[in-house]
């Protein structure tokens, strides 16, 4: 479903060249859940952001269901409709209520009517367990609630793929569980997901495959059992010794 070929992203800040994603190729099948691991600065976020074009890559290709991201004929906005993204800091729109957050893109991008948008929004809020907060502004919600709203907002566009960039890293520990539960349910329902996370439990339990990055390079692409029990790359072994 997702095809990544020879992806390269170089950051050049005043002569300081960083190969943030260095020649990465991988495939994600429909319904598959990928967990991306790696030390800080290894290029996980950059890789994820390349998948929906938030970061313009330098060479290689990314496609979803045959739709080429870098093709000038591709409408980037049409492409992004199919790819939901959840951010570390939620990025809810603070000037809108929870319900309006969920309805905006449905109305503006999907051209759904007010009624349909709201019905869809309420159904999703129900699903992530915060329907009673629909009329509140995001600032009144806890971090965990905000992140669940953010997930619902992305789902409202009926995406084919969901990308998660450390969705629980900015949360107080007691709220991590509620967000992971929502993600687990999504995985069970068969959503195709790529998750950057430091939650090793989630990776073991939910992931179909684990990708390990370091210095922009994809060093391991293995099943969770293989990766956690017998990592091949020495840097992956060192990483696991540190986090486990």
């Amino acid at each position: 479903m997702i095809e990544v070929r020879d992806l390269v992203k170089v950051f050049d800040t005043r002569g300081q060249v960083v190969r943030a994603v260095d020649n990465v190729s991988t495939n994600v099948a429909k319904g598959e859940v990928l967990v991306v691991l790696g030390p800080s600065g290894s290029g996980k976020s950059t890789f994820l952001r390349c998948l929906n074009g938030l970061e313009e890559f330098d060479s290689g290709s990314v496609s979803i269901d045959g739709l080429q991201l870098a093709d000038p004929k591709t409408d980037i906005n049409a492409y992004r409709r199919e790819v939901g993204m959840v951010f570390q800091h939620f990025n809810l729109f603070p000037h809108m209520t929870v319900l309006e957050n969920l309805c905006l893109a449905q109305k503006v991008v999907r051209k759904r009517g007010q009624k349909d948008s709201e019905a869809k929004a309420m159904a999703l809020l129900e699903k992530v367990g915060i329907a009673q907060k629909a009329r509140e502004y995001p600032s009144r919600l806890s971090g965990g609630q905000q992140q669940r709203v953010a997930i619902a907002r992305a789902l409202a566009m009926d995406p084919k793929v969901m990308l998660f960039d450390e969705p629980t890293s900015a949360l107080d520990p007691e709220m991590v569980g509620e967000v992971l539960d929502v993600m687990k349910n999504l995985a069970v329902e068969g959503m195709t997901m790529v998750c950057v996370t430091h939650e090793m439990g989630f990776a073991r339990e939910v992931a179909d495959r684990v990708l390990f990055f370091d210095h922009g390079k994809l060093l391991e692409d293995a099943s969770p059992t293989e990766f956690f029990n017998a990592p091949k790359d020495p840097r992956a072994q060192a990483f696991l010794r540190q986090v486990l």
Binding site: N52, L54, N77, A78, R80, R81, V83, G84, M85, F87, H89, N91, L92, F93, L104, A105, V108, V109, R110, A150, R153, A154, M157
Partner: peptide
């Protein structure tokens, strides 16, 4: 914050 625009763009706006 840049994240606001990124969130909007990632929704297809």
């Amino acid at each position: 914050a840049r994240g606001q625009n990124e969130a909007a763009r990632s929704l297809g706006l």
